[in-house]
């Protein structure tokens, strides 16, 4: 940085780091389609915020090297920006709560918002590591760039696996449940679920078109997670979202064996899809209490 002009080397470092950081955000964004409300606009918003996050990470090292220590204080801006991303996401999802088939629930909304915030940190850290690596490498310019990109990708892979959460299918068995309507009460595999079926129409509809799954924890202490109201609400939300909801949706826990029932009258009659979507429902961070479940799987399996 001579005479206030950015040197070619610095420019290359910054541009490379921004590209890798932004690509990191785009890569992580692809996994969000299940949770994301509006694809094109949502994609654009998050790619742009990811780009800003990557830019902040990319310029930090060149700024330090040019002894521009004041410029480094803009990192606080990064933190503020990421917090705003979380806030924006939370507000957006909360605004949609009334229009969905069922509520996501505050625990699920909080988890999604945190994930979006964390993904901006990933873009930031990836860009920062690319920038740092290229700067400290002693080889020729293009080799340094190549190593920087490689290191960035490794860091990204590590962070992706580090932040990857577990799913209901990892701690429990999810199987189809047998629906029975006795008088005006709904039972699934013998577990009482609801007595809201007070009319003949309701009984007939649930009996003919209702689908249900029973979640059985693999170990007794996993009940702590599965019994969590927010967790069950999240599973129900994913079920209604995937299959639609013609009428009625219930969750109920069985105190005796710790089983959890999810029952609904879906638009799309596909029990396999229902099982799959419940299995893939993320375990909420706020519901995690067991150390075993909290343990991060570094390989991301």
């Amino acid at each position: 940085m001579e005479d206030g002009q950015l040197s070619f080397d610095n420019l290359s470092i910054i541009v490379t780091a921004i590209i890798i950081g932004t690509l990191a955000r785009i890569w992580l964004l692809k996994e969000d389609y299940r949770q994301y409300p509006s694809y094109p606009n949502g994609y654009l918003i998050h790619v742009v915020t990811g780009f800003v996050a990557a830019a902040l990470g990319a310029v930090a090292i060149p700024a330090l090297i040019s002894k521009n220590f004041v410029a480094v204080t803009f990192l606080t801006l990064a933190l503020q920006q990421f917090r705003d991303v979380r806030k924006m996401e939370k507000e957006s999802l909360n605004d949609l709560e009334e229009t969905e088939y069922t509520y996501r629930g505050t625990a699920y909304v909080d988890g999604i918002a945190k994930t979006f915030e964390a993904r901006n940190y990933i873009a930031f850290i990836t860009a920062l590591s690319v920038s740092l690596t290229i700067t400290v490498m002693p080889f020729s310019f293009w080799i340094d760039i190549a190593i920087g990109i490689l290191v960035g990708m490794l860091i990204l892979l590590f962070l992706k696996n580090f932040t990857k959460g577990k799913r209901i299918g990892d701690i429990a068995q999810v199987e189809a449940g047998k629906i029975e309507v006795k008088d005006s009460s709904l039972f699934v595999d013998g577990i009482f679920v609801s007595n809201l079926l007070g009319t003949d129409n309701a009984s007939k509809l649930v009996q003919d078109e209702g689908l249900a799954v029973v979640i059985s924890p693999n170990e007794d202490h996993y009940r702590i997670n599965l019994d969590n109201f927010g967790q069950r609400q999240a599973a129900l939300f994913e079920a209604t979202r995937a299959l639609g909801n013609k009428r009625y949706h219930f969750t109920r826990k069985d105190y005796e064996k710790g089983r959890v029932v999810i029952a609904l009258v879906p638009i799309k009659q596909d029990i396999d899809a229902l099982i799959e979507v419940v299995k893939k429902c993320p375990l909420l961070e706020s519901a995690k209490k067991s150390h075993r479940v909290m343990k991060t799987n570094w390989r991301g399996e």
């Binding site: 005006s184 007595n195 079926l197």
Partner: peptide, 27 residues
């Protein structure tokens, strides 16, 4: 009773519980 319950529930888009004593509650 059944007909009244169904009519009201439809109008109010509500759910019906039939109590074991035969009464209906629209909630």
């Amino acid at each position: 009773a059944k007909q009244m319950t169904v009519d009201i529930a439809k109008a109010l888009k509500a759910d019906v519980v039939q109590l074991t004593n035969g009464d209906y509650m629209i909630i």
